[in-house]
Design a protein around this nucleic acid. Structure first.
Lengths: 195, 195, 195, 195
DNA sequence: GATGAATGAGGGTTCATTCAT
DNA sequence: TATGAATGAACCCTCATTCAT
């Protein structure tokens, strides 16, 4: 019963955040969306904060799982980089619902140590995945770090814009924009090499 | 008296958001930080929401003023682009306090029509300033639009990371990263031209 | 549970109005009198206004119920008129508590559309009951209307005075006063007939 | 200056009560209507309660003045009774504004000792004026008292209904109703006398 | 395991009152 | 005499949390 209820409540939390915003996401609204009583939240989670933390962990785990799957199927360093980018911009995850949930959590990061910790882990994972693949492509350490950071920042910026609806590019252009950034930097590297 | 009190309260609002986060920014906390009574907020602003809106408008106006000043001093299209970038990454404004306030407001955008409207205006201004300057450099319309969007997304991503402390680049590297993005695209354009 | 709590709160509201007056009837006072927490008001009624409306409806329903019962037991038009008068002046309802609650609601009628609506219905019911019975006694329509209005006004005046304690007649004299008014008008009619 | 300001504020208080109801009659609204600052109320009256008391006193004094004038012009006991009735139903005073102010004050009577005292004086004056005139017409003491009380109750009931708009008779019918009550009782007395 | 009635702290807001000017 | 900026207590209401069932 427990895993079912926990998932129900986490899904309902994401839905509630998207629908009403973080500030108006109340325990009753979440439980109403989940079709259960309000007391259940404290039964399966310690309280509202624990549910929120679990929700962030859950959507983070989803992203990680997808990235891991794609990485496993990749057969070259370049494909490994694309795996990371693609999983971040996968239209199935790059939805208004997901994106506004992320934004809501992000806004709590500066003042919530618990969420900040999780957020840091997520970011570092993306970064290290990118750096790792770049290093395999013979990109020098310091350079790999810079490119990975640029890619990470672009991805974050795209997610942010996606939360504002209409003011960001569609998933396809978003992908092109990030790939373009990567390509131009790799091209640049190749031109330098002979020198 | 009015302009003084309004500024006091707006400054206190930014400070409160930075210190406690958007959700825990209460009228009493704001007024305590401003060193005035809680009733004063409703005297000078209609209520909490109006104060929040005024605060977003104020920090947006500050950014616009700085951009306008820099644009006025620019003597070439390239300098105009740099003016926009520099004012967005000016270390004086690129502070944890300012940046977490922005993030807090951003998180309200998906569910607050009032704030969304202001946010849209701010974004569009940055975008059109960039596009305008790029067009003056003979960049084709569609291309100018894409580069401007890329720059805007990078800037947003950088602000977002700045709010997470430590996980973003320092102001100097941030500037380099954005300039680098611009340069590589302009270089690319020049290579295409002869062809 | 719901009907019990609702009744508790409605009774407490009447008591609070009697004790402190309408203006000083706060939600906390009501809930304290009812022996429950303040939050409960919003759980069982939407808010304070809804509780107040429900309270007026409840005391109006009580009056109507009593009138209906008496009307059912009446076996002549004259007894039907007495039924209406008696139920309005029944010592059990003609108490300081009940009477000051009515006055409090009356004072809100000129500025509260919700309460005005209910008040209008109550008044019309008394009036039409009286007119109906008078018509059965062969009193001409226009005359019946006038007598009924006079009776209604007397009843209202008596309730008003009852709220001022001491300055009104005791229930018994009140009853005599109203019956006397009715009798003299009926007598008058009989004298006219032969003419 | 003082008498001018006091009158301004008292008039504004009556207007505010009529317009917004007793509960929403705030000091700022009153002073706004009077065209003066809010602080002035505490300068000329001790506070809000004192202003309210002064307002009740003022409208009571107005009624008394009018009654006194009419009584002075009356040349027979019967005219003296009519004087009292007429001044209570004078269309100039029997207005929605005046009437809703009275009702508002009445509703405070059960819980305000200060206002109750004034109210008691007003009622007693009307009563004693009526009794006095009836005694001059040779009506036995106990009978005069009863008739005067009936008249007083009718007048109160009429004022109450006037506050409910539409549900009461027009000033003319109101007058007829009260005079009719008086006449039928006097006639009755004459019939008894010979017996 | 699950409910939802009940609590009460804390939120935004209003407003009578004070007081420096 | 007159102002209106400023206060802070008290209002209604929301909601995370508890707990008897």
């Amino acid at each position: 019963m427990e895993p079912i209820r926990r998932r129900q409540l986490i899904d309902a939390t994401v839905a509630a955040i998207h629908e009403h915003g973080f500030a108006d996401t109340t325990v009753s609204r979440i439980s109403a969306l989940a079709g259960v009583s309000s007391g259940i939240v404290h039964h399966y989670f310690g309280g509202k904060d624990d549910l929120l933390e679990a929700t962030l962990r859950a959507i983070a785990a989803e992203l990680r799982r997808d990235t891991t799957d794609r990485l496993a199927r990749a057969s070259s360093p370049r494909e490994r980089i694309d795996a990371v980018i693609d999983s971040n911009l996968d239209p199935e995850r790059f939805t208004p619902t997901a994106v506004s949930a992320w934004l809501a959590f992000w806004s709590q990061v500066p003042t919530s140590a618990r969420l900040a910790r999780i957020q840091r882990i997520i970011m570092r994972r993306v970064h290290s995945n990118l750096v790792h693949a770049l290093r395999q492509m013979q990109v020098p350490s310091e350079r790999a770090d810079r490119i990975a950071m640029g890619l990470g920042i672009l991805l974050d910026g795209l997610w942010l814009r996606a939360a504002f609806e209409e003011s960001g590019p569609d998933p396809k252009s978003a992908l092109a924009l990030v790939r373009d950034y990567l390509d131009s930097h790799l091209r640049e590297l190749r031109h330098e090499e002979p020198a």
